[in-house]
């Protein structure tokens, strides 16, 4: 496969033609924060955390959906980008009820990790304190909409990997909500196969195994990668 040469933060790297900036950066050891990207499912460019500056582009571009080109000059961590990323996180924290101290995902949460790695020590916007439900009707899993950031990873794994189409998004704007079938109780879902992929994919504590308490919700993303690789590359033997 042909390779393309580009610079990331001034360093020259090369990556396979057709790679995204996110992938090329990852291979070069440059970390670009992201919440909606998940290896194995298609990207939607929604969380805007992976925005990067590309020389010559009039706007900031999402690293997850921007394909590399020859001679591209990418900056991933300018002052402006860091400022925006921090504000994006603040908006998320203010939007629903992310109370780390009582969250099942405390210590294993991508939102929380990004917050401290980006130096977000407080939120400057009004907390909205919305009233969202917790769906505890499923025998194995629970969903706390208060902790959902609407990254739609669960929707994508459910459709793209499991093929069940159980999860989707209803409503719009701030009223958007992850639903099960026709907004039914999860436990009553006809289509859910209880495969648990959505739980594995969730970056926060919104989807969890029942019975987990504060800080216990640890996820194993390698299972998702395994099944995708198994299908696409015929690698059916799990490798550590």
């Amino acid at each position: 496969m042909a390779a393309k040469t580009l610079t990331i933060n001034g360093r020259q790297i090369s990556a396979a033609e057709g790679s995204t900036v996110l992938k090329a950066a990852e291979e070069a050891g440059v970390e670009i924060p992201s919440l909606c990207h998940l290896d194995g499912v298609y990207d939607v460019g929604a969380c805007r955390l992976c925005l990067v500056e590309v020389k010559g582009a009039s706007r900031l571009l999402p690293a997850c959906t921007t394909v590399i080109s020859e001679g591209m000059e990418v900056q991933t961590g300018t002052e402006r980008l860091i400022k925006y990323r921090r504000m994006t996180l603040e908006l998320l924290f203010a939007e629903r009820n992310h109370v780390c101290s009582v969250c099942v995902a405390d210590g294993h949460c991508e939102l929380q990790t990004l917050a401290y790695s980006l130096g977000m020590d407080h939120v400057r916007f009004d907390y909205l304190f919305p009233k969202w439900d917790v769906d505890n009707t499923h025998s194995l899993f629970g969903m706390d909409h208060n902790r959902c950031i609407l990254c739609t990873r669960c929707v994508r794994v459910c459709w793209h990997i499991e093929g069940a189409g159980t999860k989707n998004v209803s409503g719009r704007g701030g009223q958007s909500k992850i639903i099960t079938d026709l907004n039914a109780a999860w436990g009553k879902s006809d289509s859910c196969t209880s495969c648990g992929k959505c739980v594995q994919s969730c970056p926060t504590g919104a989807l969890f195994y029942k019975g987990s308490t504060v800080g216990e919700m640890v996820r194993d993303r390698s299972k998702l990668e395994f099944i995708v690789n198994a299908r696409e590359k015929k690698l059916w033997v799990y490798q550590d």
Binding site: G45, A46, R48, L92, E95, L150, R172, G173, G174
Partner: peptide, 11 residues
């Protein structure tokens, strides 16, 4: 009218 997909616009 925000569709809710991206965070800056939604929130």
């Amino acid at each position: 009218e925000s569709c809710g997909k991206c965070i800056p616009c939604r929130a």
